[in-house]
Amino acid sequence: MDKVILNRMMFYGYHGLFPEENKLGQRFTVDVELMADLKPSGTSDNMNDSIDYGQVYQVVQKVVEGEAKDLVESVAEQVAQSLFQAFDLLKAVKVYIDKPGPPIPGYYESVGIEIYRERQDYD
């Protein structure tokens, strides 16, 4: 399957279980792999036959910088759902969300979650 990939998009959000996370917020980085048939756009050289990177960024930004969620898993699920709603060409998506410096005991560079969804998961 062909892919459109956006790496290390950075956003500021207020997601987490702890009150300080909801109050102070923190940085999140997001990677997405969007699976679609890109042969038509490769042949036509027409953006209408592909998935616009700028629009992908805007969709992800709206979710991550939007309503606070307790779990990063919920954020990722909403990102996936929103991408399927925005792009008819999208067949499957992988979403990775990285949360640097989580406020939990121990020393971590980051924690993250990754989900993979197909269009039929939402039919």
Rank of each mutant, 00 (worst) to 15 (best):
G106C: 14
Q26C: 08
G66K: 08
L24E: 15
V56T: 11
V93E: 04
L24G: 03
G106Q: 11
I97A: 08
E77S: 14
Y116G: 06
N22I: 05
I51S: 02
P100N: 10
A36Q: 04
Y108D: 00
D88G: 07
S44G: 03
Q26F: 02
L71S: 14
S82I: 04
E33Y: 06
D121A: 01
Q78V: 12
G16V: 09
A92Y: 02
D2A: 03
D37A: 08
G25K: 05
F87P: 08
I113P: 10
T43E: 13
E118T: 11
D2S: 06
E33Q: 07
S41I: 03
F84H: 13
F28Y: 13
Q58V: 10
L89P: 01
L17Y: 11
F87E: 12
V72F: 05
H15T: 10
D70P: 06
M10W: 00
I5W: 02
V30F: 04
L90D: 09
V60A: 15
A68T: 10
M1C: 03
E21P: 10
K99E: 00
Q26G: 15
M9E: 06
R27I: 05
L71C: 15
V4N: 07
G42M: 02
G106L: 12
D123N: 04
Q78M: 10
G101C: 10
D49Y: 08
Y57S: 13
M10P: 00
I113C: 15
F84K: 12
K69P: 09
G25T: 08
P105C: 12
Y122D: 02
V79N: 05
N48I: 03
S82D: 14
Y96P: 00
L89V: 03
I113N: 09
L89D: 11
S82C: 10
